[in-house]
Design a protein around this nucleic acid. Structure first.
Lengths: 227, 227
DNA sequence: TCTGAATATTAATAAATTGTAAACAAACCA
DNA sequence: TGGTTTGTTTACAATTTATTAATATTCAGA
C-alpha cells in the first residue's frame, strides 16, 4: 500500500478531452502517474479508488463543478491533505479567491502552459516532502522503501511486509502520533476490516526486533515513533 | 478546533514604496505582522533579524534581484523551509518557471490585487500548517496536538487523553471562560453523560501537573486558562 | 459571620485500552 | 505438495485512565 506511492499519482478532471490529454502527457513525461476524469462525479470516484497525491480540477464542468468536488473531497478525512489545483478560464479575482478559500492550493488560469503547470506541481510537491531519495534515515535506523530493507547500525533487520509498512508509516513523521484509525487506513486500507488487536501484535513484533523504545504508546490515542 | 494564536511575520521586499505600503497595510489588516525592505540586501538583513514565516520578493530590484535573494536565503538552513512568494511585472512563462524552480512557492504577476495576494498567502500557510503541524504556545507552555506532547519550560509533562484534550481546549483561547456545558460538549461529546464532579477531577489533575495557577475557577460559570 | 451552593479533594471502583502468548489461517515458495 | 513464513484472531493479563462517591473546603451573599 505504501509502496504504490513511489511515483506520485495525479488526478486530472476536465470536460475537454484535449486539455486532459495535453496535461496528462506532460505530467507523465515528468515521471508522474496520471489519471483522467471527464467530469466532477468521475473525479470523485477515481479519487476514492486511486488516492492521488494531487488533484487538478477544472472549475467549470457539467454536473459537479470543480469547487463542489473540492468541497466534497476536503470533507473526507482521506482527502483533507491532498493537494488540489484549480484550472479555469475564469480570470476574475473573486473566483480565484473563492477557489483558494474553498481549499485549493493553487489556481491557474487557462490558457495554461504545460511547463508552468508542471513547475507549479513540482513546487507544491517540493513543499510537502523534501526527503531525498527513498531512504528514510532516523538516527541509526535506515528505512529503504524501494528495496524494502531496514538497517539498524548498518545491520539488516528482517521485517515482514506489514511490519515494514507500519514502521515506515510511523517513521515518516517521527514523534507524530498516528491514530489507530489512521494506521488502519494507511497500512491496511480503508476497506479492510481487521480485529482490535491486530495493530498491537504488529507493533509488538517491531518492538521485538528494534527494541522496545522505538515505538511509544500514547494510550487512548495511538502510537508514535521515536529513535 | 484548536486555533493558532501566534501572529505570522511576513517580510516584503520591493523597491517601490507604494507597493510596499499597500501590501503591508493589507497584510496587517488580516492580522499578520509585516516588515518592509526596500531592496534585496535589506531583505536579507531583515530576514536574518526577524526570521519571517513568509517572504514576498519583488523580482526586479536594484542590487540583488528577488531570485538572487531567494537563492541566497535558501542556502541557509534557517530559511530552507521559509515560504517565498515572487512578485513581478514580468509575465513570461520562462521567468515564472525560473522563479518556481529557484525555490519559490508561488509567483504572482503585477498588477496584483491585494485580496488575491492575501488569499494566496493564506493558502500557503494553510498548507504548511497541515504538513508541519502547529504548536500552541502560551508563555512557557507549549501544546503540540500532533505529537500529543505538552511541555512546560521545555520539560515534558505527561497528560492522559482527557486531561490533554481539556487543557488543549482551555488553552486554545486563553482567558476565555469555558462553561461547564461547553467543556462537556467539546471534550466528552454531546451524547456522553457523566457526573457533575468529573470535570473538577480532571481540572485538578491538570493543576497538579502544571501548577494551581494555570486554570482559574469562575464560580457558577466555568473555568479559564491563563499562564 | 452564618449559610447554602458550588467546587475541591481523595480514595475507591469501574471502564477502557493495550500487551502478550498461543493457536489458527492464509499466503508463499521451493 | 509440504513446509515455512506471515497475518490475524482469541483469550486473558496487565495497565492505565475515567468516573463516582463521600467528604471537605471555599466563597458569595444575607
Amino acid at each position: 500500500m505504501i509502496l504504490e506511492t513511489k511515483a506520485r499519482t495525479i488526478l486530472i478532471a476536465d470536460d475537454e478531452p484535449d486539455i486532459l490529454e495535453i496535461i496528462s502527457f506532460n505530467l507523465q513525461s515528468q515521471g508522474y502517474h496520471s489519471i483522467c476524469a471527464n467530469n466532477g462525479i468521475e473525479a470523485i470516484e477515481l479519487a476514492k479508488i486511486h488516492k492521488p497525491d494531487l488533484i487538478i480540477l477544472d472549475v467549470m464542468m457539467p454536473g459537479k463543478s470543480g469547487f463542489e468536488v473540492c468541497k466534497f473531497l476536503r470533507a473526507l478525512p482521506e482527502f483533507e491533505n491532498t493537494i488540489i489545483i484549480f484550472l479555469t478560464a475564469l480570470n476574475d479575482d473573486s473566483t480565484q479567491i473563492k477557489g483558494l478559500e474553498t481549499g485549493g492550493d493553487d489556481y491557474i488560469t487557462k490558457p495554461i502552459s504545460p511547463k508552468v503547470l508542471i513547475s507549479r506541481v513540482n513546487a507544491l510537491f517540493r513543499r510537502i516532502t523534501k526527503e531525498t531519495g527513498s531512504i528514510l534515515q532516523i538516527g541509526d535506523l535506515a528505512i529503504d522503501r524501494e528495496k524494502y530493507v531496514v538497517t539498524l547500525n548498518n545491520e539488516e533487520i528482517i521485517l515482514a511486509r506489514k511490519e515494514f509498512e507500519l514502521l515506515a508509516l510511523l517513521a515518516s513523521k517521527p514523534a507524530k502520533v498516528f491514530l489507530r484509525n489512521e494506521i488502519l487506513n494507511k497500512v491496511w486500507g480503508s476497506d479492510v476490516i481487521v480485529g482490535d488487536r491486530t495493530i498491537d501484535v504488529h507493533i509488538r513484533k517491531i518492538r521485538q526486533k528494534l527494541g522496545d523504545d522505538c515505538i511509544t504508546t500514547v494510550k487512548g490515542v495511538g502510537y508514535k515513533f521515536q529513535m
